[in-house]
């Protein structure tokens, strides 16, 4: 237990919505996500999974409680610092793939790295190709993003999430729009990322098989943590 490194930790996160009436959508959420862990969040529709993920992602900073990433307190940082933190340490994968339609697949993947500017343009291009290869779609590299199938687009957005080698990859129903074959590809990729590359995945899902096969599952109900099943070894 002691050698497990918490990459993300929350302390009593709570959040209110005020419209149409005031209600507590998240209540006392405390958990840890470890390095190399494949963590899934499940729960009924409306239980607050997406809301929690947005708080964890640093995009939503209007909550109570505290969030730590890499043992550094994130809560209370300025918008620009949070943007830089997302750029460096967090990758995103959404149900709707949200690629920039005017750009090629390759360019879509490169954008977060071009923003980070840790490598030269050529190096970034090479690295983007590597990620495409990892996901088996290097032949689509130069196509405009809008011309790909749904499964291919989702793989491009996974590659984009990986480009800056973030510590954590957050996904909101990454397989929600995919058929079983594409779901399997995404799942295998996630397994590979966590076990081989040591990155952490926090994925919201409705797919119970998907959740069962992950390292650990947290179940939310009415904004509270209901169960922690399975422990991450």
């Amino acid at each position: 237990m002691s050698e497990k490194k918490a990459i993300l930790r929350t302390e009593g996160i709570g959040k209110y919505f005020y419209t149409p009436v005031k209600f507590k959508v998240l209540d006392g959420i405390s958990f840890e996500a470890y390095k190399g862990e494949f963590l899934t969040l499940v729960g009924k529709s409306g239980s607050g999974k997406s809301t929690l993920l947005y708080c964890l992602s640093t995009m939503d900073s209007d909550y109570e409680g505290k969030l730590y990433i890499n043992e550094e307190q994130v809560t209370g940082k300025k918008a620009d610092e949070l943007a830089a933190l997302r750029n460096n340490s967090i990758g995103f994968i959404f149900q709707f793939h949200y690629l920039l339609p005017e750009f090629s697949c390759l360019k879509n993947i490169m954008l977060p790295a071009l923003k980070k500017q840790a490598y030269s343009y050529e190096e970034i291009e090479t690295r983007a190709y590597e990620k495409l290869k990892l996901l088996g779609i290097e032949d689509q590299a130069l196509k405009p993003a809008s011309k790909l199938s749904g499964g291919q687009q989702q793989r491009v957005s996974i590659a984009r999430a990986l480009i800056n080698d973030p510590d954590i990859i957050m996904c909101d129903e990454p397989t929600g729009n995919l058929d079983s074959k594409n779901t399997q590809i995404v799942f295998d990729t996630f397994k590979k990322i966590t076990s081989e590359l040591g990155q952490t995945i926090i994925a919201v899902t409705h797919d119970l098989d998907f959740a069962k096969a992950s390292d650990r599952t947290i179940e939310l109900a009415d904004g509270k943590i209901l169960t922690h099943n399975k422990t991450f070894q």
């Binding site: 992602s57 995009m59 918008a79 620009d80 943007a83 830089a84 933190l85 997302r86 750029n87 460096n88 995103f92 949200y98 690629l99 920039l100 339609p101 954008l111 977060p112 923003k115 980070k116 984009r160």
Partner: peptide, 16 residues
Amino acid sequence: LNDIAILKATGFSKKD
């Protein structure tokens, strides 16, 4: 709107 949201999510700041 979607493009801007994704850019901000992936670390582009207001200034960008």
